[in-house]
């Protein structure tokens, strides 16, 4: 645990202005940060020797309808060298949910971000091709938001 905590402490040291919280549940670490320097932070996590999270396993969002801030962007990074998963979470306000795209850091983020845009309506600034990916382009609304009904729309 001491070793993994060092990821959090290093982020806290290098990005003190965006670091919010460190959580651990069932041996999985979560670091919550502000959206402001997300690209810088992700580049650091990818390239820093000893961390080398060169693989973006997953990118998604969660809608906490009743809470503020409403949205949480969730990144799952994986390091083949260290064989470990790291979860980065970024809270976003309901009014204007946008965040910088990480497609320039990992190409795989392209479709993940499009899906997130499609189903949650999160805007990824700097994404090369931000269109709906799973749903028809003329659909209104974003179905995975909690205020979107399951049926009867």
């Amino acid at each position: 645990m001491a070793e993994t905590n060092s990821v959090a402490s290093r982020i806290k040291q290098i990005f003190p202005d965006v670091f919010l919280e460190y959580q651990s549940f069932r041996d999985q670490e979560t670091i919550i940060v502000k959206r402001d320097r997300i690209k810088e932070l992700m580049t650091f996590l990818r390239d820093e020797p000893g961390l080398e999270f060169r693989y973006l396993a997953d990118l998604t969002a969660v809608d906490y309808l009743q809470k503020r801030p409403r949205f949480m962007i969730v990144y799952h990074l994986y390091s083949h060298k260290e064989k470990r998963i790291l979860r980065i979470k970024v809270p976003l306000e309901e009014e204007d949910p946008y965040i910088d795209s990480v497609t320039s850091i990992w190409s795989t983020a392209n479709w993940h971000e499009r899906e997130c845009f499609d189903l949650f309506g999160i805007r990824f600034v700097g994404h090369p091709d931000l269109r709906r990916i799973l749903l028809p382009s003329d659909l209104e609304g974003h179905p995975l938001r909690k205020d979107y009904p399951v049926e009867g729309r």
Binding site: R26, Q28, A57, D58, T60, V74, H76, I85
Partner: peptide, 16 residues
């Protein structure tokens, strides 16, 4: 919350 990945026949299958 957990993210669990397994080696499915086609690759990494993850459930968050």
């Amino acid at each position: 919350e957990v993210y669990v990945h397994t080696e499915a026949p086609k690759g990494e299958l993850g459930f968050y």
